[in-house]
Design a protein around this nucleic acid. Structure first.
Lengths: 332, 332
DNA sequence: ATCGTTTGTGTAATCGTTTGCACAGCGATA
DNA sequence: TATCGCTGTGCAAACGATTACACAAACGAT
C-alpha cells in the first residue's frame, strides 16, 4: 500500500498482525493446503493491506525449485532469435516461469555466464546457441537436464533436443532455381566455426549433388547485414556465380543489396538469392525474399512441450523434429 | 566433474570432505575474507573436483541482494528494443548481474508479471515500456527504486530516470523537409495510448508550428511494418500529404513500401518519409531511411551508470538526459 | 617471560519460506 | 459413550549459504 515503505514485510510479521502462525500464512498462499477458508480470506486481506508477497527466493531455497529458466542465445540482435525469444518468453510466463537471458558474443564469457546462471538453480535450460558444446552444457548444468536446439541427432543420448531438418525444403528450393536455368552456385556461410551452419550448407549441397552440381564458391560472414553485403561484393567479383545461398535472411538481404547496388544485378533474373530462417522481415514488400523458413511458432511450441514434460517429472530425454519449408519470394 | 551427478553438493558436505567447517568454505569463495591461502587453495581444488559452486539462491536469501535485474519491455520483436536490450544485457553481465526479461503485450498480464518478478527480490528494475504507469512501478517494486526510461521530466521526483529529448533533432529534420518544398505533413503514430508517442509527435508538431504549419492528417498503427504499410495506404488515399513522420523506423519502412508499391510515389521526390529510433536496419542500403536517431550505446551507458550508482548505495534519484540526432538518408 | 596484535578457524544465529508431525475440536458412526 | 476420521492450526526442522563473535595459535616487541 505504502509505496515509500523500504523493507518488505515477512510472513512472521504478517502472522503477528493477523494473529496466526507463519505456517498458516504460507498455507494461505498455497492453493491446495489444509486451511479454513475464513482464515485464508482474512490473511489475504491483511496481506493486501500491508503489501505482503511471499519471498520467492526463500521459497526457492526451501522447495528446491526456482522457477527460473536460463536461455542461452548468441545475440538478440538477430531478428530470427528475437522473434523466437519473444514467443518463448510469452509461453514461459504463462507457466509462471521467469526467463534469465544469457547472451554473449565471446566464448569464454559464455561459459562463465552459464556457470553463473547455474548457481541460481534454474529449473530449465534452453540452449539456442550453436557455439556451446553439449558437453559443456551438461557439465555446467549438471542438475538440470538442458534442452538443446540442434540440427542433427545428438551424440549424447541423455539430452532432450529439438531437431530442425531442412533437407527436403532445401531440395525444393534448389530444384526450382535449377529449373530456372541457374547452374553456378555459391554458399555464403554465417560463421566459420558453427556446426549448425555446416549442416545447413549440407542440405543445399546434397540437393545440388542430385543435379550433378556443387558449390563453385564459398564465403564466410558473421550473420550480419554488413558481412552479407561485403562478402557478396568480394564473391561476385571473383567468380561468376548466378545463385547465392546465404546462412540467414539478414545476410541474404545484404547480399541482395550488394548485387543490386555494386554489381547492378537484379534478382531473380541476373542472380538468385536465398536466405534461411524465415524472419518476418523476409516477407516485407521491399525484401520479398525466397528463404528456407522455419515456423517459429511451432518451434517454440516444441520447446515448451519439452519443458512441460520436464516439469511434470518426465525428464525423457525427449526429441522433437521440425521441418523447414520454402517461402517463395521474388529473389529466387 | 561427473556430469550425471544428480544432486548438487552443499557447502556442509564439501566442508566434511575438505576437513574444515562450512564457514571456511564460504570464506574460500569470498574475495576479501580472513582465510589462509593454503586452506583456500585446498578448498578450491576440492570444490573443483566435486563440482561445488555456492548456491546463489541461499546466498541471496542471506545477503538480501539477489543480483537479478528485471527488464520490463514491450516487445523484443521491435528491433530497436532488441538492439538496446542486447547492449544492456552485455553490460549487466560485466557486473555479474543477471537479467530477467519481462515482455508482455497485454496490460494486466504485465502488472501480474511485474508482481511475480518483484517476489524474486530483484536488485534493480529498468522499465522501457511506456505502457507502465510510474505509480504502478513504484507500488509493485516498493523496495527497489525503479529506473524509468522516459521522455519527459517525471512528476514523481523520487525515481531515477533517463530522459530522451528529440526536440532539437526533430526541428532540424522539419527544417530540411520544409526547405525542400514540402508543406503538407502527416503523423503516423505508433500507438494511441502511449505517452511516449504523444511526446514524440509534439517534437515535430512544435517544429512545424515554427514554420506556421501543422499536421494535416493523422493515423494510428502499432509500431509494426504491417500497420505502417496499411495505415499509409489509407492515409495517402484520403489526403494529399507530401511528408509522413512515423512513430518508429519499422513503420516508416512500411509506409515507404506502401507509397512506392501501392501509390507509385518515390522518396524523397514525391513524398518525404521520416522514421524514429535509428535502428541498424535504417542504414541498410535498401532502406537508407532519414530518421530521428538515438545513440543506443550512450543510452545503455546511461542506464548502466544509474545502476552502478544505485549499486554503490547512492539511490539518487538520478536523472540523465540524452538528445536525439537526425540520420540523413534518401527518404527525406 | 609477558603482553598485544594479527591471523585463521569454528560455533551458532540468521535470512524467509515450506511442510511433516502432533494435537485439539468436532461431527458421525457403532 | 467410546471410537474413528477429518479439519484447521501451531511447532519446529529443514533449505544452503553468510557473518558476528569467540578463541587458540603464532608472532613481534618489550
Amino acid at each position: 500500500m505504502n509505496g515509500t515503505n523500504r523493507r518488505r514485510i515477512t510472513s512472521k510479521e504478517l502472522a503477528k498482525l493477523a494473529g496466526v502462525s507463519s505456517a498458516t500464512i504460507s498455507r494461505a498462499f498455497s492453493p491446495n493446503s489444509r486451511i479454513g477458508s475464513a482464515t485464508r480470506d482474512r490473511i489475504l486481506a491483511v496481506a493486501r493491506e500491508y503489501g505482503y508477497q511471499p519471498n520467492a527466493i526463500a521459497r526457492s531455497l526451501n522447495n528446491q525449485r526456482s522457477r527460473l529458466v536460463a536461455l542461452v542465445v548468441n545475440a538478440i540482435g538477430n531478428p530470427c532469435e528475437a522473434e523466437e525469444q519473444q514467443l518463448l518468453i510469452h509461453r514461459l510466463q504463462a507457466h509462471q516461469l521467469l526467463p534469465i537471458l544469457l547472451c554473449c558474443a565471446d566464448h569464454s564469457d559464455r561459459l562463465q555466464l552459464m556457470r553463473l546462471a547455474s548457481t541460481y538453480q534454474v529449473d530449465h535450460v534452453v540452449i539456442f546457441s550453436d557455439m556451446v558444446s553439449m558437453q559443456d552444457a551438461v557439465d555446467i548444468f549438471h542438475t538440470t537436464k538442458p534442452i538443446i536446439v540442434s540440427f542433427e541427432p545428438l551424440e549424447n543420448e541423455d539430452v532432450s533436443n529439438i531437431r530442425i531438418d531442412g533437407a527436403v525444403g532445401a531440395g525444393e528450393i534448389i530444384d526450382k532455381i535449377v529449373s530456372d536455368g541457374k547452374r553456378r552456385f555459391a554458399y555464403l556461410s554465417g560463421t566459420k566455426s558453427s556446426w549448425i551452419d555446416k549442416l545447413r550448407r549440407k542440405w543445399f549441397a546434397d540437393a545440388l549433388a542430385r543435379h550433378g552440381l556443387a558449390f563453385e564458391a564459398e564465403a564466410f560472414g558473421d550473420y550480419s547485414y554488413d558481412s552479407g553485403f561485403k562478402e557478396a561484393v568480394l564473391l561476385l567479383h571473383r567468380s561468376k556465380v548466378d545463385a547465392v545461398i546465404c546462412g540467414n535472411d539478414v545476410m541474404a538481404i545484404g547480399a541482395r543489396d550488394a548485387a543490386r547496388r555494386v554489381l547492378g544485378k537484379n534478382t531473380p533474373g541476373d542472380i538468385a538469392i536465398v536466405g534461411q530462417d524465415g524472419i518476418a522481415m523476409a516477407a516485407w514488400d521491399c525484401n520479398d525474399l525466397t528463404t528456407l523458413s522455419l515456423d517459429h511458432v511451432s518451434f517454440m511450441d516444441a520447446v515448451v512441450e519439452v519443458i512441460e514434460r520436464h516439469e511434470a517429472g518426465d525428464e525423457g530425454p525427449h526429441s522433437i523434429t521440425l521441418a523447414c519449408t520454402p517461402r517463395w519470394g521474388s529473389t529466387a
